[in-house]
């Protein structure tokens, strides 16, 4: 399996990269870790004429604590996320999710930016970023703009990014101290995409749920932020009745297609089960 021919570019600044991408238009694609794009190129599902490799650009990787915000550079790898003491302390759902992505070799190459940018519904970080209320920083020749993760995904592989833009950074509002979190993913084997997965963040106050956020992976064309599932939890003691209602909302919001992972009904059912498990675990972790 040999990809189609392309011309390779390796710019050393963001400005140079966006200029290249802008000049070359839709014949060009940015290359981060390559672990989504290269498999697609082998299958000729993607046949870019130019690849703009971002690896030499300083400042595109790294995890930064900006107080109320945690900023993650697009070229930060999943392995970097797993090794981050900052994330383990302040946003542990991120390493919990990274651990469930693919396998060690793929995590060594695969980047956070690539995972969220390309709009593959199988990727895990998009739903996570919707759950966390993250925003994406997009850089083009005309300057910088930000798009909320909850507004970024339009359909499978269709996103708010324009030709000539690259996603440079993900900004996550730091979840409050004492929050509960869980990412639950049903998959058939290591390296598989989710049959269904759920990201949950919640806070408790005096035994009652003060805030809750729920999003789903791989049960639709896009990640699905299920506001109604979060609302079903707020104000409750996160008891069985509330959890069942959140799971029901998730099942209703899910729009999976039948594939090797199962028929539609089954995958929607699994989405509900993942929400039930994730909410219970997040509740038990919250202080």
């Amino acid at each position: 399996m040999i990809p189609g021919p392309f011309t390779y570019h390796r710019p050393s600044t963001v400005e140079e990269a966006v200029k290249l991408l802008g000049d070359l238009g839709d014949e060009a694609r940015p290359l981060a870790g390559g672990h989504s794009l290269i498999p697609m190129m082998k299958l000729r599902l993607a046949v870019p004429e130019h690849l703009v490799d971002l690896q030499d650009i300083d400042g595109l990787s790294g995890i930064r604590d900006d107080g109320d915000t945690i900023s993650i550079g697009a070229m930060t790898t999943q392995e970097d996320v797993l090794g981050s003491a900052l994330l383990r302390e302040k946003c542990p759902i991120l390493p919990e999710t990274s651990w469930l992505i693919a396998d060690p070799q793929v995590r060594a190459c695969g980047t956070v930016g690539g995972n969220v940018a390309n709009g593959d519904p199988g990727n895990d970080m998009p739903a996570l970023m919707q759950c966390l209320g993250a925003t994406y920083v997009l850089q083009g020749t005309g300057g910088q703009r930000t798009v909320a993760a909850r507004d970024y995904y339009q359909a499978a592989y269709f996103t708010a990014i324009e030709d000539g833009e690259i996603l440079t950074e993900v900004r996550i509002p730091a979840p409050p101290a004492g929050h509960g979190w869980a990412y639950e993913k049903m998959k058939r084997k290591v390296g598989d995409y989710a049959t269904a997965a759920a990201a949950v963040i919640l806070t408790l106050s005096g035994g009652s749920c003060a805030s809750a956020s729920v999003a789903l992976t791989n049960v639709g064309q896009t990640p699905i932020f299920v506001a109604a599932a979060g609302e079903a939890l707020v104000g409750t003691a996160v008891d069985d009745a509330a959890i069942n209602e959140a799971a029901r909302q998730a099942r209703e919001a899910a729009e999976p297609v039948a594939d090797l992972r199962g028929p539609e009904d089954f995958r929607a059912h699994v989405a509900g089960v993942m929400v039930r498990r994730a909410v219970a675990r997040a509740r038990d972790r919250a202080r």
Binding site: Y8, G34, H35, P39, Q105, V106, C109, G191
Partner: peptide
């Protein structure tokens, strides 16, 4: 990039050489 038979060490990490140009 599933089976790992092509795994090599590159710059201090394990990579699957079938998925690196």
């Amino acid at each position: 990039s599933h089976c790992g038979a092509c795994t090599v060490d590159m710059n201090g990490t394990s990579v699957k050489a079938c998925t690196v140009f």
